[in-house]
Every structure is written in C-alpha cells, then in structure tokens.
Nucleic acid binder design. Structure first.
Length: 205
DNA sequence: TGCGCCCCTAGAGCGTGCTA
DNA sequence: TAGCACGCTCTAGGGGCGCA
C-alpha cells in the first residue's frame, strides 16, 4: 500500500488549498497544484470551490473515499467476518464479554507504557505515540480549554462499523489511563461521517 | 552518454468578487 | 462600473533520475 506526502497531508489536515499544501511541503504553489490535479484525475482527491471574499474563490482539495483507501485498514474483511461469526454462533453476550476482555487487556497495556509519565501532558503525548504506532495517525494540541487528541485515521474502521463496542471501549480506556481527574469527550467521530476522531480532554480539578 | 519521463519553478495572464 | 486584490491557470524550461 503506497501513499505519498500529498495524500498524507490531506489525510492529516483535511481540505487544503494548493497554496497551503505548497507551504506545508516547501514547494511552489504551481508544483503543488499540478500534483493535486494529477490526483484529482486519478480519483484520489476531489476539488471544490469555496468563496471567501475578495478574489477568486479558493479551490479546496480533499481526499476522496478512494484516496482514503490508500491508508491501511488492516485485515478489515477478516475482522468483520470474525465478529459476525462470533455474534451468530456464540451470541451478543459472548461478543460483549470478549470486547470487555479486550478493553481490560488494552487498558493494562497502555497503563504499563504510560507508567513512567506523571503529568497529564506527558501521558497524553505518550498515548498519542502509542496510537500512532497502532496506525491511528494521532496527534494532540493544547489550547485554553485543555487538550485535543486527534486520530486522523481509523485502522479498525470496518470492525468498528460492525461493532460499536470498539469505539466505546477505546473511550473507556482513554478515561482510565489518563486518570480520574480528567474529563474526556469525543467531539468528532469517523463513524458519524467526520473526517477524524477527536477527543476533548480537560482537567476537572 | 543520450534519451525520455517526471517533478518542479517562474512568470505572465485570467477569473472572481469587493469597494469606492 | 472601473480599479484593485487575491488566487487560479497556462506555458516554457530546467534538473534529477532511470534505462538502454
């Protein structure tokens, strides 16, 4: 599966103008535009006009579903098949039991990795690194409201569509590994049609 | 080494919309 | 409605790279 820096940028930053892409990649506007148009022709990127006041409307480039498919969705089909088999043969309760066990396992693993970090920002940074390693293309930012943990990609999207327990479980894990003095809410959700999953993290004290 | 392809740059021109 | 600002488009040409 091959992706390049243009697709990677659109994946992580969402819709961008050719000028923005050029600035991010350190090339000229025209160089970026020509490359983006090539991706448009290939169906990996779509372009839309957006009027923002004086001047010609901006042309916003963003990934198409075909472009998104260039990013890994590991063993999606097999995973969905296994989930459905488990549900059909063992029942919903058994599936939930497995999901719960997975949540505990995941939480323990994250806890162990984040053990060296004491303050919240270090733990969020550590969590971001773990999630990126797992294919979520995660990043975090800090602002006046607290922290924003962003996952630009969902490598288990197909499985999550089949079983919402994955998403619920992940949110629970985040709450547990970041501590009781933290409030976390999901503000963007890929399964709801958003470009990314994003979590607002705020200290409650 | 020559050739072709790809990627990129630079510059000029064009299209769109705001403002006086 | 003309002038202006902003951003897109077109075209020519250069550099890097792979291949025969």
């Amino acid at each position: 599966m091959k992706t390049n820096r243009f697709l990677m940028l659109l994946k992580t930053r969402g819709g961008l103008t050719a000028a923005s892409v050029a600035q991010e990649l350190g090339i000229t506007n025209e160089g970026a535009r020509l490359q983006l148009l090539k991706f448009v022709e290939e169906g990996l990127v779509s372009a839309s006009n957006e009027s923002t006041g004086v001047g010609r409307p901006k042309q916003i480039f963003s990934l198409t579903p075909q472009g998104n498919s260039k990013f890994p969705d590991t063993h999606a089909e097999l995973t969905v098949k296994l989930i459905n088999l488990m549900r059909d043969t063992l029942g919903e309760d058994a599936l939930k039991a497995v999901m719960d066990a997975g949540e505990v396992f995941g939480k323990d693993r994250y806890m162990k990795e984040l053990e060296p970090f004491s303050n919240l920002e270090e733990r969020i940074a550590g969590l971001t690194e773990i999630r990126t390693r797992e294919g979520y293309m995660a990043e975090y930012t800090k602002d006046e409201a607290g922290y924003l943990l962003i996952e630009n990609h969902c490598p288990i999207c197909a499985a999550a569509k089949s079983c919402q327990g994955f998403c619920t479980g992940e949110l629970n894990i985040f709450k547990q590994v970041l501590g009781s003095k933290v409030e976390i809410s999901r503000i963007d959700h890929i399964l709801s049609g958003d470009r990314r999953c994003a979590y607002r993290i705020a200290e409650t004290q």
